[in-house]
């Protein structure tokens, strides 16, 4: 990554990444994570929202040894160091899946669908995965 990219002095926008897919059956989750990490270099105001099967991306205790895929769940714990600190999880999505906040690998803010709807309205850019 080049340092120069950060010296543009441009305005800070609110970017929101919506994650709706489970982690290993399709490539969306990993792609989203990579875009977030690359995008972090631009020092924008980033939020990650986990709804639908996206909540499965951040379940604790993932062990992919048996399916020969990379376990990328620990990387969500590195997001804080990339200054990506706003992680929101939809309560309804957790409940429908028999999950609770304690099942998640990272600290998140659990929100209702209505609160997430309002959060989305505040964004400048919304990217959906």
């Amino acid at each position: 990554m080049s340092e120069e990219m950060m010296e543009g002095g441009g305005t800070i926008k609110k970017f929101c990444y919506i994650n709706r897919k489970a982690p290993y059956g399709t490539v969306y989750a990993l792609e989203s994570l990579e875009v977030v990490l690359i995008g972090a270099a631009f020092e924008q105001d980033v939020s990650l929202v986990f709804v639908d099967d996206g909540v499965f991306q951040i379940t604790k205790g993932q062990d992919t040894a048996g399916i020969e895929q990379k376990n990328f769940s620990p990387t969500y714990r590195a997001l804080e160091m990339y200054d990506v600190e706003k992680l929101y999880v939809e309560r309804e999505a957790l409940e429908a899946r028999g999950l609770s906040e304690e099942d998640l690998i990272v600290d998140v803010q659990v929100m209702s669908a209505a609160e997430i709807r309002d959060l989305l309205e505040e964004q400048d850019v919304v990217l959906s995965f």
């Binding site: 489970a22 982690p23 604790k60 993932q62 040894a65 048996g66 399916i67 376990n71």
Partner: peptide, 11 residues
Amino acid sequence: EGDLKARGVAG
């Protein structure tokens, strides 16, 4: 089982 473990839901 491998798919359950990968997804952190085996328990």
